[in-house]
């Protein structure tokens, strides 16, 4: 079974839940920016939650199906058209061979997830089908999809049509988006004034926002605690001896524009980090468009773990909602 990419959209890539285990070599976990949305799309078409689907950012692709299959589109809000006829998002529907899926303009969020019954069946690399374009790894020939690509789909029975995720479980960022941050790592490098300003200032998403990281601007330049720079760090006060970066960690080169590293994170580097966005809020970043207003909200570890448990609960509820008899 296959599907054909008629138009690729802006950057449509194959993603699953990622390839952990190689970050020590600079190969990131990768996978869907909005994990919850991909899980939901897979559940709707009867797949395992970690099956590979398509992630499209800002602009939807046009896809021609080579076989009968069940499809679901989740994540950002983008009108869905099957041969020109509207379909609901977060809801399963069947397609026939030769039918074409296309999309209208993005209305909310940033990324949509398209799951098909059987899942995308390209060859896994290092245990995952996720596209890591920087390393030309995984996905379709190590790259985002292009017009004319014929993408293999796993064999699977059709799933139930009309299954839908309750609106309460469709998680997206608010306005402004609130991203919860646990201060740490090199937080002590900032003056108290800048520590407070980071959480008080109004930020917006900068145009440089992609799978590697999201850049933010609009806040005040940061001031550093005076020190003689440690040997090997470099002379700028925002420099450190190159260390590890973690998913969600927030670096501020030159003290100017914070960058939150995301799924295709670089694994290390020489800029100080002031803490990290908590694991529960990483999905939300994947749904932010450039210029979206953002507030960073300070939390402690206890609150971070409570938020993590809450997100886990949403995944449980997703599973349960689809196990109810229709």
């Amino acid at each position: 079974m296959t599907l054909e990419i008629v138009k690729p959209g802006l950057a449509t890539s194959i993603q699953d839940l990622g390839r952990p285990g190689y970050f020590h070599l600079g190969i990131p976990e990768g996978g869907a920016m909005d994990r919850l949305a991909l899980r939901a799309a897979n559940l709707l078409v009867g797949n395992d939650e970690d099956a590979a689907g398509l992630e499209a950012v800002f602009l939807g692709p046009e896809i021609k199906f080579g076989a009968e299959m069940t499809v679901a589109v989740t994540g950002g809000e983008m009108p869905i058209l099957l041969d020109g006829e509207p379909r609901d998002n977060w809801t399963s529907f069947n397609v026939m061979p030769g039918q074409t899926l296309s999309f209208g303009y993005l209305k909310a969020g940033a990324r949509i997830y398209i799951a098909v019954s059987g899942g995308i069946a390209t060859e896994p690399h290092l245990g995952s089908r996720s596209t890591y374009a920087i390393g030309a790894l995984g996905g379709f020939d190590g790259r985002a999809l292009a017009a004319g690509d014929v993408v293999p789909v796993g064999a699977a029975p059709l799933a139930e049509e009309g299954l839908s995720i309750p609106e309460a479980l469709r998680r997206g960022p608010g306005k402004p988006a609130e991203l919860r941050v646990l201060p740490g790592l090199y937080w002590h490098r900032l003056t108290e004034k800048s520590q407070a300003a980071f959480f008080d200032d109004a930020w917006t998403v900068a145009p440089e926002a992609d799978r590697m990281g999201y850049r933010f601007r609009g806040g005040q330049p940061m001031e550093f605690v005076d020190r003689e720079q440690p040997f090997g760090a470099g002379s700028d006060p925002s420099n450190i001896v190159d260390g590890c970066y973690s998913y969600g960690s927030i670096q501020v080169p030159g003290g100017l524009e914070p960058i939150v590293l995301h799924r295709d994170a670089v694994s290390g580097g020489g800029y100080f980090t002031l803490g990290a966005v908590i694991s529960a809020d990483m999905d939300l970043i994947g749904q932010l468009q450039p210029n979206a207003p953002v507030k960073f909200v300070r939390v402690d570890m206890e609150q971070a773990l409570a938020a993590r448990a809450e997100r886990k609960q949403i995944i449980e509820q997703l599973r349960e909602s689809l196990n109810q008899p229709g």
């Binding site: 740490g184 790592l185 440690p230 040997f231 760090a233 973690s246 969600g248 908590i278 971070a304």
Partner: peptide, 19 residues
């Protein structure tokens, strides 16, 4: 020792570089 979010422990043996 410091936490990097809720999933990472960061261990800096020294803030300057040496073998």
């Amino acid at each position: 020792y410091s936490f990097g979010g809720d999933e990472h422990v960061y261990v800096e043996v020294d803030d300057e570089m040496s073998l």
